[in-house]
Amino acid sequence: MLSSRNVRRAVQSASRKRSGWALLAAFTGGLLIATACARAAAQPKVTLEQVSSKVYCLCGCATTVDRCSDLHCKAKAEIEGIITQDIAKGMDEPAILRDLVNRFGVRILAAPPAKGFDLLAWVLPGVALALGLTLVVVVVRRWRRKVSSAAESDRTPPVDDKILAAVEDEMKKMDSLTR
């Protein structure tokens, strides 16, 4: 009787497990498809706003061109003029950015190009993320390994009934205190 119930429970839990995995897989799949669709749906048209948010204004305001609040800013007017012209010429975003770099130098870009020494700016956060993950995994595994050896020592001293009674006692006392 008991064992058959156990078997049934095991079967149930196995099927539950399977349905759980299916759920997880469906979820991940949906997420991937949604991501792909979102990517595909992103329009490739270049706008002035889009480009001007990626270049720095050179008037000393320390913001990107679209955020420079000085209405009479000459640098802003000049850069926006160039971008508008380039868009009219049918250039895409990377080409416009290249054009701007040729005219004003790398410092105009709001983020450094991912090459040469500046590649470090982009790579290191990723490296840090990866290193951190490795560290976390190593730590977790070390904790785990210790438990397997500690588990035996956990069980070797048979727990004294008197001590267990004292534990229960203390616990009840604490419960009544903090209720």
């Binding site: 069980r155 001590i163 534990v167 616990m171």
Partner: peptide, 15 residues
């Protein structure tokens, strides 16, 4: 069970 064992160990150490 493992919490109980832990408490018991600490209690034994106390005693």
């Amino acid at each position: 069970e493992s919490y109980r064992a832990e408490a018991a160990r600490l209690m034994a150490a106390s005693q």
